[in-house]
């Protein structure tokens, strides 16, 4: 079965039952997984920043090549693509994983918590519940979901959990 590897700033939506969507080496970035097991359709986006930065010379390129660079602009786009592929808002589930953090550091450098806050804000504003989350900690993660199946697998530090 096909496996799609999603990297920083990318999003992938698949309707192929059994296809695997995975993001490995998830650090402070935040993997948002959305699935509708009935449709079936599933998607994974890997957000890096809370909002798009001002980049006079490269803004368009960043938006085109990294649609999931920023949560504020990328998450609505991600939902739009999922809906176009048959997602039902009544049947969907949302999981989030990532946002690792250092032992200590200034808030301006805590990209994980900034992105996490932005994602939560958007979901709450749209009354979308999170089915499961695995965030924070001092470790990298690998996040996997399979189209047509319920749940998200998170591997970290020699351990594995199902959300």
């Amino acid at each position: 079965m096909q496996t799609f590897s999603i990297k920083n700033g990318e999003m992938m939506v698949s309707k192929e039952p059994g296809a695997v969507l995975e993001a490995c080496s998830v650090g402070a970035n935040l993997a948002v997984c959305i699935a509708d097991a009935n449709a079936p359709v599933a998607g994974l986006a890997l957000f890096v920043l809370p909002q798009m930065p001002q980049m006079p010379n490269a803004f368009d390129e960043a938006q085109e090549r990294l649609p999931a660079l920023a949560a504020m602009s990328g998450l609505p786009l991600f939902f739009k693509r999922m809906l176009q592929e048959g997602l039902s808002m009544d049947n969907m589930k949302v999981w989030i994983a990532g946002a690792a953090c250092f032992f200590s550091g200034p808030a301006d450098l805590s990209l994980g918590s900034q992105t996490y806050t932005a994602v939560k804000k958007i979901l709450e504003a749209n009354k979308i519940k999170i089915a499961g989350e695995h965030v924070g900690g001092q470790f990298k993660r690998c996040v996997r979901l399979v189209v047509g199946q319920d749940g998200v697998q998170v591997s970290f530090d020699d351990q594995e959990v199902m959300l």
Partner: peptide, 10 residues
């Protein structure tokens, strides 16, 4: 920092 992160990724 946000601008840097975007430039680094590109």
């Amino acid at each position: 920092i946000h601008r840097c992160v975007a430039m680094i990724l590109l």
